[in-house]
Nucleic acid binder design. Structure first.
Lengths: 131, 131
DNA sequence: CAGCATCCTCTACGATACTG
DNA sequence: CAGTATCGTAGAGGATGCTG
């Protein structure tokens, strides 16, 4: 079976959609060290609101990347844990994070330079417009 | 310098934001084989509108991941090409794509199962509500 | 050819408040 | 503790048409 990421119908795009989620990748990486409670996650993934955390967790559960375990006790306790499938995502994610840590500074520099050039061009094109 | 992806101020998050872009990763991967013209990209990355393609390209250029070269001729010709920095992103991206190709089917299966269970639960909770 | 302008929709994300 | 409910916003993405 041919999987072509360029085909709009290719399910592989689902993965990039999930990775694209601002919070999903962070949650996954926090869960690397083992099961975590809702409040643990909420504390470690700064700064996420409970609504968004819930939504993120549900999506990841739906995709089979983590499990949700409810303990019948008071006060309630819910554990979230990566599934084997979820754990396999850790590797490529880590590669991405390492790239990020190594290269963001260069990216930010490029960004600043670009914006500056942009401003200069804008200023030049409007020179004399104030007087 | 400490880079912590969990810190909301950590610039590393910028990378995940860029990766998260629905189109950016696709464009980068298409550019692996060398410079491409606007219309080339438009044709290969199905199905992207010119507006969105332009926006994506600009963002990537701003971040120093690709260069934009205008040829002064008629009809106009503009080439987009990955920078060395952009090319280094290819590796982690490929890792992600391979993960996707290998595991999406399992993800989709999990998703279907989850949705089915959800439906069943919903149906059960509303049993008798119609009569 | 390589785009820009305009209008529109949809949803991710956030702030705040409340509950079993 | 682990959420849900409600309201609100910004921006991503799309459809269509026009231009140097």
């Amino acid at each position: 079976m041919e999987t072509n990421i360029l085909d709009p119908n290719c399910p592989s795009r689902l993965v990039f959609q999930r990775i694209g989620d601002k919070w999903a990748t962070l949650v996954i990486q926090v869960l690397e060290d083992g099961p975590q409670r809702f409040s643990d996650l909420r504390g470690k993934v700064a700064v996420i609101t409970p609504k968004v955390l819930t939504h993120t967790l549900r999506s990841l559960e739906r995709d089979g990347l983590l499990t949700r375990t409810v303990f019948a006790q008071v006060p309630p306790r819910v554990d979230y844990e990566l599934t084997p499938l979820g754990r396999t995502l850790l590797e490529p994610l880590k590669a991405l994070r390492h790239w990020a840590e190594a290269n963001v500074s260069e990216m930010v520099l490029a960004r600043d330079a670009f914006d500056e050039a942009q401003d200069a061009a804008l200023l030049a094109s409007s020179k004399g417009s104030f007087e």
